[in-house]
Design a protein around this nucleic acid. Structure first.
Length: 529
RNA sequence: GCGGGAGUAGCUCAGCUGGUAGAGCACUACCUUGCCAAGGUAGAUGUCGCGCGUUCGAAUCGCGUCUCCCGCUCCA
């Protein structure tokens, strides 16, 4: 049995749980991983040198699927709205960006191990879960106020050796065993990738690979406002790579160290943030639906206060029910209040910030925009719908994966992608490979269809017709166009009127119909929109 | 990081107590007036994850390491 959902508190189930008729979903991750490798969707990173944990490469079909998902997102969130701008900011960022964003502090949580049972805990979580008298002892040992927990954590984090003594001297218990633990010295785990900039690696010449694309949006807030004359409310969208040094990358492309994000930072007037938060929740759910990830399989988690990230006022996590993983986060929609722009702006004290930010004497920009009512400068609130491309791809793949038993008893694997996401749109197949007339005409049709800009069109002239159909089922090609002897008018008599027509075979229904070559472009354009 | 399992052809796997690697499918070429993994003929394919050790000899035994899966832990 697989582990059940890790959900803590479900706000609601969006939509009725209409269980769609399905022969069989992917039951194991291995099955998906195997298909992905066999057909060229996803490969292990650095594979020929033994692989590298938490890194994956997208193959010929994977890159198409990924590009299609990103294009669908961009279309829905940038082109089809009037209040959005796009951005593509750099991956390596100034260390001060990640310092003032709060990541430098919160991305390096010290961890301690209990040598008795080899359990590992975050130091602050471990101390927080102790009884009051134990916390008091720890605080006394550290010379900190037991009532001020953040200060206590700061003291513990600052001095690992002393923290270690405090844990031992205070009888800190292991939450799992309930016994007093034999604690190691806290070890920092840096979750951000650091890199040196320039040829000389010295103390100060380093930067970070961004752990989220969002920071590039915040640091360009003023540039975008100044260059586009945007007023509130408006948003900035960005798709790009982000890097997190996860302790335990797991579950194929679900938790990886190099990931791609599709992020929106939507800037609005303080006080309107809750309405916009609801707006984006709705928008995002309907987008997922359009990608073939139904609402009935997404649980909306209203993240409990104590689990919120350091920047968040309130967050909805969209928990998709992965057939292979149970409910896991596919997108987070956070209300980041004025935390980010407030953290990165100069003159913080003049701006009536709501969020508690740390002092910033480094920024040279005031990140304000005129209030729509008063025209006075204001730091806007931010709603952030942030989705992982890799997780989206895994969800789309999971939903599309179908194993069917045909009427003749044979089994087939089909990826029932929505047509706009399918890596290959159309396969053009000559019925026999050794008839140059068929192959030539198929090649010509392929070339003509390619000009339509629908995406990838493939000339499929290997194997036999049955194998070609099955192969394209397995990669989710919605339509196969077959050129046969009727097409080239080599069947005398009864089928003479079929000259100039081809068959189109539907991936899901297996039905075929004849369409004139002259009508083919229009027919496919209508279906693949 | 801990515990358990696994890694052999593109895929799924067999390979006993050590004797130098196999099957099915897939693949490639040719043939087939052929429509749902069809039929015929021929063919290619492996550092047995990697390294070290034991041994006359290692896919097989031991140690280390990398990767994947499961369970903990972690996932700001």
């Amino acid at each position: 049995m697989r582990p059940q959902a890790t959900c803590r508190r479900a706000l609601c189930f969006a939509g009725a749980a209409g269980n769609k008729e399905r022969n069989m979903p992917a039951t194991s991750m291995e099955e998906l991983v195997s298909l992905c490798k066999r057909r060229g969707f996803i490969f292990q990173g650095s594979e020929i040198y033994g692989g590298l944990q938490g890194f994956y490469d997208y193959g010929p079909l994977g890159v198409e699927l990924k590009n299609n998902i990103k294009a669908a997102w961009w279309r829905a969130n940038v082109y089809e709205r009037d209040d959005m701008e796009g951005l593509d900011s750099s991956i390596i960022m100034h260390r001060l960006v990640l310092r003032h964003s709060g990541h430098e502090a919160t991305f390096s949580d010290p961890m301690v191990d209990n040598k008795k049972n080899n359990k590992r805990y975050r130091l602050d979580h471990l101390v927080k879960d102790q009884k009051a008298d134990v916390i008091a002892k720890v605080a006394a040992h550290m010379g900190a106020d037991p009532e001020n927990f953040p200060a206590l954590v700061a003291a513990l984090n600052a001095d690992p050796a002393k923290a270690s003594e405090a844990l031992r001297a205070s009888g800190v218990r292991d939450a799992f065993s309930g016994e007093v633990g034999d604690w190691t010295e806290p070890k920092p785990f840096n979750m951000m990738f650091k890199t040196t900039i320039g040829p000389v690696a010295d103390e100060e010449s380093y930067g970070y690979l961004r752990p989220e694309t969002a920071q590039g949006i915040f640091t360009n807030f003023k540039n975008v406002v100044d260059s586009t004359s945007r007023r509130l409310p408006f948003g900035i969208a960005q798709i790009g790579k982000a890097f997190r040094n996860e302790i335990t990358p797991r579950n194929f492309i679900f938790r990886v160290r190099e990931l791609e994000q599709m992020e929106i930072e939507f800037f609005c007037t303080p006080g309107t943030d809750e309405d916009w938060h609801a707006h984006w929740l709705e928008k995002r759910l309907s987008w997922w639906e359009a990608q073939g990830v139904p609402r009935s399989k997404i649980e909306i988690l209203d993240v409990p206060k104590e689990d919120l990230a350091h920047y968040s006022k309130r967050t909805y996590d969209l928990m998709y029910d992965y057939p292979t993983l149970g409910h896991e986060e596919i997108e987070g929609i956070a209300n980041r209040s004025d935390y980010d722009l407030g953290s990165h702006t100069k003159s913080q004290s003049e701006l009536n910030l709501v969020a508690s930010v740390t002092e910033n004497n480094d920024s040279i920009a005031k990140l304000t925009i005129p209030h729509p009512d008063t025209n006075k400068p204001v730091v806007p609130f931010v709603i952030e719908p942030s989705a992982g491309v890799d997780r989206a791809l895994l969800a789309v793949l999971s939903e599309a994966f179908t194993k069917e038993t045909l009427e003749n008893g044979n089994e087939r694997i089909v990826l029932k992608f929505r047509p706009h996401l399918a890596p290959i749109k159309v396969a053009v197949i000559p019925l026999a490979r050794n008839k140059p007339e068929l192959v030539e005409l198929a090649r010509q049709i392929k070339s003509d269809l390619q000009q339509l800009g629908l995406g990838r069109i493939l000339l499929e002239d290997s194997g036999n017709i049955g194998k070609a159909y099955r192969r394209h089922d397995e990669v989710g090609t919605p339509y196969c166009v077959t050129v046969d002897f009727d097409t080239i008018g080599q069947n005398e008599g009864e089928n003479a009127d079929l000259k100039g027509t081809v068959t189109i075979r539907d991936r899901d229904t297996l039905q075929q119909q004849r369409v004139a070559i002259s009508d083919l472009s229009g027919w496919l354009q209508a279906k693949l929109k």
